[in-house]
Amino acid sequence: MGQGIRTAVVTVAALAAWGAGSGVFAAGIDDGAVTAPKLADGAVTYRAIVPGAVTNSKIVDGAVTDEKLGFGAVTTPKLADGAVTDAKIAGPIAGHKIGRHGHDAADIVQGTIDAARLPVGTAPGTVAAGDHTHEGLLRRPAELITVALSGGDFTNPIDALNSITDASADKPYLVKIMPGTYDLGIDTLVMKSYVDIEGSGELTTRLRGNAADAGVVAGASMAELRNLTVQASGTEGTIVGIFNGSAAPRIAHVTVSAEGGKGAYGIYNLMAAPVIADVTVLAGGSDTAFGVFNLHSSPIVRNSAIKAGNGIYSYYSGTVTVEGTSVNASLTTLFTDVGATTLVANSRLTGGRPASNGIMKCVGVYDGNYEPVSCR
């Protein structure tokens, strides 16, 4: 019989059936009598355990290991509220033991988050990746320099021009002047080749100065001045709005005014060949006020409006071309001296008549009453 006892197999199912009716589980087995070595692996299944039969006091700390638990064996109904305490959990809990869940940002205090968990992108509500840049959107070209009363690269356009030292045909620059009035005082804004100067509009960007003789702006070849107003005034010397000395700049969509001094010149050309297009020139204050004054120069004036005591004056040599332009002068609208040539087409001459000691040719020229004007 001893041998039979030693070889008998008591199944947990039988014990459970018997114990459920006899109360053995409650009082028949001493605490700690059934130890882990007494149980064959897999002998105790969760179906054989009456809910609530195994209490915390029946389990030695550390007796239930990950290997003893089948995946999904311990379900919520098997655990009494508060039965699993921090003290009962040794070491980390594997991710596969925990169902899908989320965390608030405050719960994440260390470690890394897989990029797959983040909405990486460039649209609103997304997170930019570490190797992502907005270079194409935010990076401003190095060849663009801004001048503004506040928030620009410079507050003075002269300083902006002086900062450029490497302009060339392969590396042209643009100096953009934002709205405002910029008082240059007695200094001159000297243009540079391959550097355009652009305002924000003739009514919003103004360059003001009283530089005698040298002009508020001095032109340069291979450069354009556009979309702004130049205002020259003063009491000393000769007042000049734009001075072009041995230069051929392009001047477009610019308003130029000059007044005061011993003489006022809107645009003064000396051995120059500028292209003047869509420009308004206003010169006044005395009989020595000139809209466009030329010495040994060959400017082209197109689609412009000139109002001055004297309109367009040309001395010595050079050919002046005037097309689609209105000249309003109280004294002389056009004057051409010996050695100079003036060619006028489709233009309006109001006030004083043209005069010439050199060569002057007019085609389609008319006066304020739209009567034909002869330049001879």
Results as ranks from 00 to 15, higher is better:
D66I: 06
A87Q: 10
G95T: 15
G95R: 10
V64P: 04
G99F: 11
A63W: 11
F71H: 11
D66Q: 13
K78N: 13
T65W: 13
V84W: 15
K97R: 14
S57H: 06
S57R: 13
D66M: 03
I98L: 15
V60T: 13
T75W: 03
A106S: 14
T55E: 12
P51H: 07
G99P: 01
L69I: 15
A53E: 09
H96W: 15
A63R: 03
G72L: 02
A87Y: 13
G52F: 06
P92F: 12
P92H: 06
A106I: 10
A53R: 14
H96Y: 15
A106R: 13
V50C: 00
I93H: 02
G91L: 02
K97F: 10
P77A: 00
A105Q: 10
V54P: 05
V64D: 06
A105T: 14
I93S: 00
A105R: 07
L79S: 01
V64I: 15
E67L: 09
T65I: 05
A87W: 11
T75V: 08
T55S: 11
T76L: 08
R100A: 12
F71S: 05
G99W: 11
A80R: 14
G82Y: 15
V64C: 02
D66A: 09
E67F: 15
I98G: 00
A73E: 15
T65S: 11
V64S: 00
D104M: 03
D104R: 03
V50M: 02
A83D: 05
A83L: 09
L69E: 09
L69H: 10
D107M: 13
P92C: 00
P92Q: 08
R100C: 07
F71E: 10
E67D: 14
A94T: 10
H101G: 02
T76I: 10
A53Q: 13
A63T: 06
G62I: 04
N56Y: 08
G72S: 04
D107C: 12
I98T: 04
K58H: 14
G82K: 04
A80Q: 13
T76C: 00
P77R: 03
I59G: 00
P77D: 05
A73C: 02
I89Q: 01
G62T: 04
K97W: 14
R100F: 14
A63H: 09
P51R: 12
A106W: 11
G72P: 04
G52E: 07
V84H: 12
I49N: 03
K88C: 01
L69C: 08
V60H: 05
H103Q: 14
H101Y: 14
A73F: 09
I93W: 07
D107Y: 08
A90E: 05
A94H: 11
K78T: 05
H103T: 08
V60C: 00
D86W: 12
T76H: 08
G99I: 02
T75M: 05
A83M: 08
L79A: 04
V60F: 11
V64G: 00
G102H: 06
T55Y: 02
G91A: 01
D86G: 12
N56F: 04
S57F: 05
H103D: 12
K97D: 07
D66H: 06
T65Q: 11
P51E: 05
G72E: 06
T76K: 09
D104F: 09
A53Y: 02
K97M: 13
V64Y: 10
I93G: 01
A94Q: 11
